[in-house]
Design a protein around this nucleic acid. Sequence first.
DNA 1: CCACCGCCTTGATAAGCATCAATCCGGCGC
DNA 2: GCGCCGGATTGATGCTTATCAAGGCGGTGG
Lengths: 236, 236
Amino acid sequence: MAGKTRVTCFGCQTRRTAEWCALDDAELALLDRVKQPREREAGTTLFDQGAPCAGLYCIQTGLVGIRKLDARGNSTLLRLCGAGETVGYRAFLRKSDHLTTAEMLLPGRVCFIDRATVRALLTQNPNLGLRFLDHSVRDADELAQRYFEGVTFPVRTRLLNVLMVLYERFGGLDADGRAVLELPLSRQDLAALIGTSPESMSRNIGRVQDEGFARFEGRTVRIDDIDALMRHLPAS
Amino acid sequence: MAGKTRVTCFGCQTRRTAEWCALDDAELALLDRVKQPREREAGTTLFDQGAPCAGLYCIQTGLVGIRKLDARGNSTLLRLCGAGETVGYRAFLRKSDHLTTAEMLLPGRVCFIDRATVRALLTQNPNLGLRFLDHSVRDADELAQRYFEGVTFPVRTRLLNVLMVLYERFGGLDADGRAVLELPLSRQDLAALIGTSPESMSRNIGRVQDEGFARFEGRTVRIDDIDALMRHLPAS
DNA sequence: CCACCGCCTTGATAAGCATCAATCCGGCGC
DNA sequence: GCGCCGGATTGATGCTTATCAAGGCGGTGG
């Protein structure tokens, strides 16, 4: 136990921004009792495309990537999920197999909540369903936006776009007050995130560097002039 | 009134497959009282991208296309909605402006249900929310699939794909037992539906004709060998 | 009938992108 | 150190697609 805090759902900071804040104390106690927290390494999967849905996964720390594959080995990152987010809920609500794979991109702690418990909580507390409804609507809106960008904008534009999105989520200012972003992704995952090949990603990174928008050193990105970058983006 | 049937929500055949089947008789009576049915011509819009959400639209007959535009005139058809479907619910649930435009592609009758009524019904009947949750999950799944196809498959494959989807929905067999599909869309809308230009659509139609998959005569498509067509599709 | 207009097609051209292949780089184990 | 391996880059090539431009085709209204 030494050095390993026992985190209850009550004390879980991320819960407040998530679906589970709809629960009352009794329901939360149930959730706390049955949840199965587990530390997971980067690269491991929470569930795999085509597998039946065993339950939900609530991310406490770390980063999860939602992937979609096809028979010929094409792979795409549909979205990134961070602390507080619950993944796997669509297959659960659909009552069918997972259409995607959830993979740990950064190590972290994830709680598993079995199907039966979720079903019990959902029937007992209608507000929980409404929270999932909110989540699903946001997901759908985001996917629509990504589809639109995917079929209308070239790779360079999508790259600049995703850089801004990642900056808002993972970026900050360095000691000199300059914008810095530590990418939580490999180049090939970055490519998969905007739906292109690693080679095209590499070339376009070089291109936006030549254009002076950003400097890439490994996984750290320095953005010299954020305003200039944003002016080059299409109105979103 | 002659020749114009007064359709109540009770008698509405399409309701049974839609969100509103969650309502009891009293709630249905309320819906029937406040709903505003209206015949709409092709080309008119139910709501426009950027406009505030006034309420929901329940399609009785006809076909509605959900469009997304950007400042530079790019247009994409995100999805087609037919009889029984309710559109505009995402903006309503998000409590913000519409992110898309809903346009009549075929003429038909659409009922408008104002915001206040929907909100009242939603708080009163938790099952209604769960129905919308189902709808939203299906939308999100479909959009994920479309995004994946959009960034991984070339136009020809996406065309064959959409032809099969449209065939399942609008197709049938002619007198000789051959598969026929009457397209409810212009060529440019067909192009917008798979995220390409009208020129590329035209060329790829010619190509699948040369390959013998289908024959296009105006908006009617004759598919000689459906099995051969399906074998050429990537495993979905 | 003719002019007009939108939709569709076709052609020519250039840009974007995937693919294959070779190379380079950094980390890790031996 | 040395070899190995996966990720990343770079180059060469060809396919795919967008774009611009021109022309056809089918309506509708004068």
